[in-house]
Design a binder for these strands. Structure first.
Lengths: 344, 344
DNA sequence: ATGAAAGCGCTAACAA
DNA sequence: TTGTTAGCGCTTTCAT
């Protein structure tokens, strides 16, 4: 008992004209309509009466566009859960959706896509464009991305990784880390550290670590690569470290990691921030839910998502994108997890 | 410089056959292929050589299906942000995506849809089915839902609200609240309260409040409607209440509300759970990030999302759904925000 | 001002 | 085993 939707043809019959005229009256906003007002009114009435809606897919098919964008999650995890870890991916998606809506595109998450055969998504006509969001794609993926039929924008990567041929959007990791280091220095901290997940494959990890080392030095702090704390997924290394913590402050690679750091430090009897100042990265909403609230480097995730879409849409519409790499500045959201070392 | 994708016709030409044969060889999994192995191989080679991918939209168009599901967010907010408040919506979406993938459908979030003209989504051919997620739709919306061309499943509502004609999925609010009340009673709490947002329009608020009153009575607790704390969005009422708190425990309508309750109670010098036990509702991931970790009634959001999709797909495929209303049981996740009143 | 024709890529039904 | 026909709903182009 499938109810048929009303088609252009139905409206045309009711109004006593051909579908072409109906199309012009109802959908040709820009062009001159070239239809007598009387007919136009008759058509509009008929459409109203029947409750006509254009069939979007038929139109898109005819126009050879889908007005749909896909979000690809290449490698790393099986599927990005929205509700897991920090709200990182959720924030990003909010930005992507926002940007897409602005340009009249929809955002689709679909199986083949987020799973393995990402090659399909680039060629099966499902999308006008793709956002590739991945920690760090293996070489063969990069080749695939470069050769994709469909325009792609890659998040959290550098254009150089793709032979300068794929637009990318990334935050200014160096400048972000510098904000954190300077903040700690201004609070009188000298022994500061950087915590990262050893097994996380991501260019950004190394960017942030290197930025930590470099900016600390610039700030005149006695920091070496020994001050980088490498952690395993299960946080065993963290327990080990906390038996004999050597620093008064730590900058963590992500908010999720910072949350763990705080929780486990508290288990070990440390008071945050009195005994240890902690800074996260991303400044997602859940920083406000942690106790103490987490000071965090704010990567503008919403804007990153939106920017990526802006760039992608330009590409889809055949415009050149300049510059190919969008680097967005970070800010520092100072909350309660950092305090002056002098107070203690 | 739009690169054309390879079409069936291109493969056919290269293999020296007609498109129909190619279609059969490459896509007719189920039916007998009825093609000689030699030709089939030739076709497969040609497809491989050219890097052919089926155009999914053309196929769907021809088949008069979209294999796409929409998520409608009727009223209340302008657009559900994934990263806002508790992770409620994110969890739900994870379940929805999971369920959709299982059945081979994609999930689309698109502008017209999540904005105002939800009527479009029901008739513009964009979706094979819709999930309606709304706090509590106004009457005219309900009429629209009932009359929709496209199959719909409504979340967090009762089938009776839609004349018994629309399938719904909802958690067992009564049983969930009962778990919380019994838990508190077993910890020796006598003066317990229920906190809700006065201005939130939602059937579930009232269900939970009523369940609180009824199950408390059953548990032999001296509870009246005066023990329901009504709050404004800005939480001014909460500050007022906390000047002179009358209860040793509170069950909150949502995790987000519980988080606020805890934070503001702490500002007022209360220690959680020593001075006040707090229970949330939803048990989203961020309960673990609160300090203390939040005891919460767990609504199986992932399963609610998945179930909704299962039901929706049945409807799409013309099956009858029985029962029309799926009520999923809650559980209680006991964390650190509740403790025995006797300890103090 | 209106209409006829054509076709987007694909596949079900029927024909040879 | 292979091919022909036809059409999903829409819009662009060209004719009337």
């Amino acid at each position: 008992m499938k109810i048929m939707a009303i088609r252009l043809r139905d409206v045309a019959e009711k109004a006593g004209v051909t579908p072409v005229v109906v199309s012009r009256v109802l959908h040709n906003k820009a062009n001159g309509i070239r239809v007598s007002e009387a007919t136009a009114q008759r058509i509009r009435d008929a459409a109203e009466d029947l409750g006509y809606r254009v069939n979007v897919w038929a139109r898109n098919f005819r126009n050879q566009r889908t007005m749909a964008l896909g979000v690809l999650h290449g490698t790393g995890f099986p599927r990005p859960m929205l509700d897991r870890g920090s709200r990182y991916f959720a924030s990003l998606m909010d930005g992507i959706i926002e940007g897409a809506f602005k340009h009249g595109y929809s955002v689709t998450m679909c199986p083949k896509l987020l799973g393995e055969d990402s090659n399909d998504a680039m060629n099966d006509g499902r999308f006008d464009g793709l956002i590739w969001y991945s920690t760090s794609p293996p070489p063969e993926m990069k080749e695939q991305i470069i050769r994709s039929v469909v325009p792609i924008v890659v998040l959290h990567a550098h254009t150089a990784e793709f032979g300068g041929r794929i637009p990318t959007v990334i935050c200014d990791n160096y400048q972000g880390i510098k904000l954190a280091v300077d903040h700690l220095a201004s609070l009188g901290h000298r022994k500061i550290s950087f915590a990262m997940e050893r097994e996380l494959l991501s260019n950004e990890v190394h960017e942030r670590r290197d930025a930590f080392l470099k900016t600390s030095e610039q700030a005149g702090l006695p920091v070496t690569s020994a001050d980088v704390i490498q952690l395993d997924w299960e946080r065993r290394d963290l327990h080990t470290y906390l038996l004999n913590p050597l620093h008064s402050a730590v900058i963590c690679f992500s908010d999720g990691l910072a949350a763990d750091f705080i929780a486990i430090a508290q288990e070990h009897g440390l008071t945050i921030p009195k005994d240890l100042s902690v800074i996260g990265f991303d400044s997602t909403a859940f920083c406000n839910e942690l106790r103490p609230e987490l000071t965090s480097i704010s990567q503008p995730l919403l804007r990153i998502g939106e920017t990526a879409i802006d760039v992608l849409v330009k590409r889809i519409e055949g415009e050149m994108v300049e510059p190919m790499e969008s680097v967005l500045p970070c800010t520092l959201d100072i909350r309660r997890s950092t305090e002056s070392v002098l107070q203690s």
